[in-house]
Amino acid sequence: MSAVVYVLSTVTGYVLTSALLLKCPSLLHRRKRETFRSRHISHRGGAGENLENTMAAFRHAVKLGTDMLELDCHLTKDEQVVVLHDSNLKRSTGVSANISDVSYADLPPYLCKLGVTFKRECFVEGGDDKNIPLLRDVFEAFPQTPINIDIKVNNDTLIRKVSELVVKYDREQLTVWGNSRGEIVKKCHKENPRIPLLFSLPRVLLLVGLFYTGLLPFVPIKEQFLEIPMPSITLKLRDPKKMTRSERFITWVADTLLMRKTLFDHLTARGIQVYVWVLNDEEDFKRAFDLGATGVMTDYPTKLKEFMENSIPSTSLLE
């Protein structure tokens, strides 16, 4: 009987301690220092309003007052760091070639019209700027704007060169980098631990597991930015009639597990920013902010700006 009482008291003490630390993590962990906070994040510069990842898109978003530019990086044949999403040029330029096989001077321009990845049956048409930019061009044009870099391939040279550019332009406190792949994030951290990290997918899964077992409040975290999708938007991106019952169920489970205000609040209290992507509708903007997300990533920076001005009047994009 005494053993049962001991076990029950131990479990009760653990649960209460976990609950306390979940609400007040500063009792165990020093809050991470935030050199910037981003609420309005422009995905690929705002892929629904300008051709994605172009200087025109970035200039438009910064002029609106976006808090952060999100972009993707690859390496060309002559080892130039370029801003581009896909490894192959077919979707963006119409030329079927891997970017790693083409020198920068030979890169074709963007097509005049591109589909918006996270908005079903929507397209954007570009103006005069159809060039694939260099990462250094972006750094030079927007020296004070935080930039979120997705390292698209597991390439040591790419990671090293991105780090060198970040250091050269004195952007270690204005940049966050990573990828969904754990091995890429590990290499990024090893190359330059001073650049803040995004959670990789394996680390997101670990984070969720720790949260639901009550262990999260006791575990130190090296990452400073949790960037996760809102699974429910899958129902908008695909025709619901073509989704199987199991696909809809998996989407519901993933959404239920990830979109938790208690989790977001705990991370925010530890100085870890939470970005939800890629949201393009007002109802999703509202849901993300209501859940405690510190930032929303969108293809439509104008729409998000208007939503924030109308729904969050005390919040300035330039704060």
Rank of each mutant, 00 (worst) to 15 (best):
V166E: 10
V166Y: 03
G127P: 08
K187V: 01
W177L: 10
A141H: 06
K187H: 12
N148D: 14
V162G: 13
V219Y: 12
V162E: 11
L198I: 06
E140S: 15
S163R: 08
I159A: 10
Q173W: 03
P193E: 11
V176M: 12
L174C: 08
D128T: 12
N131L: 09
G178N: 02
Y169N: 11
V204A: 11
R120D: 00
N192F: 06
K190P: 10
G209F: 07
L165A: 09
T117L: 12
K187A: 10
L158P: 13
P133Y: 03
D170I: 02
V116R: 04
D150T: 04
V167G: 05
L216N: 00
P202V: 03
E183T: 09
T117E: 14
I159V: 09
Y169E: 12
L216E: 09
K186L: 03
V167D: 14
R194D: 14
Q144T: 14
V138M: 05
D150W: 08
Y169R: 02
N192W: 05
S163M: 04
K161L: 15
P133M: 04
P202Q: 03
F199Q: 01
I149E: 12
A141S: 15
E172W: 08
R136V: 09
V219Q: 10
L215C: 14
G126N: 06
P133L: 08
K130G: 07
H189L: 10
F139T: 00
L210W: 05
K113G: 11
K161V: 06
L165V: 11
K187G: 04
N179L: 01
L216A: 07
E183H: 11
C188V: 00
F199K: 05
V124A: 02
R181V: 00
N148T: 04
E140K: 15
E191H: 02
F199C: 09
I149M: 05
N148M: 07
G115R: 09
L198Q: 05
K187Q: 14
P143G: 02
L210T: 00
P217G: 06
V116K: 00
E191I: 01
P193K: 01
L207S: 01
K152T: 04
N154Q: 13
V166L: 04
L201K: 13
V185I: 02
